[in-house]
Amino acid sequence: MTPERLARGQELIARYPQPQSALIPFLQYCQEQDGYVTLQAMKDAGELVGVTPGEVESIASFYTLLFKERVGKHIIQVCRTLSCSLRGADELQSYIKRKLGIGHLETSADGRFYYEEVECLAACDRAPCLQHNLEFHYDVTPAAFDQLLEAWQTQPPQPAMPAE
């Protein structure tokens, strides 16, 4: 484990009465840096909080915002649940998939975009909505998406899954 990770891990542990509570925050921190939860991060996490690597994998694989494989630098998560679906999410999804040339849970060949259809994002009043690297975008029409895409492509690199 790098000294930096160890230090961060200890900081997180200090927040809680039991070290294991720091496990998910620590994985989120590692994911912010590495782009996904690497095997090394899982090993580090286990060592840090005192659980086996098997347990870390079991826990990490439960949560959909922890990626166990490398995904794109732009994580696009479009809501697919009822309220968005009633207001055009299905069309938006087809549009984005066509535009990016990738499907649900896929990363583009150039490693830039990852696309996922997710469950209700709690923004039903401004449907259809999506998150890009955990940032909300509301009332997204295909045209609006094109604009977003352009903006993302020119914006300086940022972590796809910010930790805090």
Binding site: L39, M42, T52, P53, G54, E55, V56, E57, S58, S61, F62
Partner: peptide, 15 residues
């Protein structure tokens, strides 16, 4: 351990 969740759950080991 159990990995994944829901009906995708599997019995498994690390990696």
């Amino acid at each position: 351990v159990v990995v994944e969740r829901g009906h995708s759950s599997l019995i498994g080991t690390v990696d």
